[in-house]
Nucleic acid binder design. Structure first.
Ligand SMILES: [Mn+2]
Ligand SMILES: [Mn+2]
Ligand SMILES: [Zn+2]
Ligand SMILES: [Zn+2]
Lengths: 150, 150
DNA sequence: TAATTGTTGCAACCCGGTTGCATTTTTGAT
DNA sequence: ATCAAAAATGCAACCGGGTTGCAACAATTA
């Protein structure tokens, strides 16, 4: 097998973004495309280790150019490593949740929240370029197990 | 001069929180009480250097116990050092702004935004303990000077 | 007094991320 | 296909924020 659908998707995405094609970039992009939650640089690297070996630095550099091209967004994480996820019309900016107990980091539906653009009101003291809403606490699993443990 | 009002305030705050009094703790607390914007550990230390010398580790440890006691809150900063500010009834949780150009980090009035508690709706998938809204872009100064430069 | 407990400072370390530079890969023109 | 220019990678070394281990010092308590 020379190519699969994933590879094709990634290749097209790179071409559309005008980013030259390398095996490392394709590999990282495929991981991000398959991901169902935000990933950090190290997780991406480990996911890749089975197939190919990519240097830590390269992962950061690849993520950096993806971000500059608008393909992905970076989500800052308090204390730990930052996360990355694909940007698309179906995946607009939204809040994220991290569990203080197990560290799980997931996207939150914007639904139950006031929509992010509506947060940007008046106040021309600043020109706002990015909004990040990070929520922390306990995920359902940790909340429940903690409850029954005590 | 043995005591001034600031020292008295800090001392009372420590006593009320049940935190034993040391010169280092009083010094750090005084800096935070005087501050008009969030400060990071290093800034606190530098502000202190003129009067006394406090080890980096001690600053972090003092901030840690202040935080545990609920006297201060910590505001995560993407990439850089975290910030700290006093907690009080007059200073409820609010969004913060950081300028990507000059690094200025300031508190934002909750006013133009939907109030934070109102963000916490339904979705019992998580037990929410903390919400952080970090906004970035250009401060008024940087926006204006950048505009006229180009 | 002596034993206990808590706090500080120093050094060493950890981790996420970046930089310099030599080597390899990709590109694109011939 | 070839070959030179340009771009990307990998390694090592580094950086900054923050933490940990531990010995010295200080304050409490018996
Ligand atoms: Mn997300
Ligand atoms: Mn604030
Ligand atoms: Zn959890
Ligand atoms: Zn600025």
């Amino acid at each position: 097998m020379v190519t699969n659908t994933k590879d094709t998707d990634a290749l097209l995405a790179l071409q559309k973004a005008g980013i030259s094609k390398t095996s490392q970039r394709l590999a990282v992009l495929n991981i991000l495309l398959k991901a169902t939650r935000p990933l950090n640089a190290n997780t991406i690297r480990q996911a890749l280790k089975t197939k190919a070996s990519i240097d830590k630095v390269t992962v950061y550099r690849v993520l950096s150019i993806f971000k500059k091209s608008g393909m992905i967004r970076e989500i800052a994480s308090a204390g730990g490593a930052n996360y990355f996820e694909m940007v698309s019309l179906e995946n607009p900016l939204h809040p994220h949740f991290s569990c203080r107990n197990c560290g799980t980091f997931v996207c939150m539906e914007p639904a139950p929240f006031i929509k992010m653009p509506e947060l940007i009101l008046s106040k021309d003291d600043y020109s706002i370029e990015h909004i990040e809403i990070n929520i922390s606490g306990l995920c359902a699993d940790c909340r429940d197990t903690t409850k029954t443990e005590s």
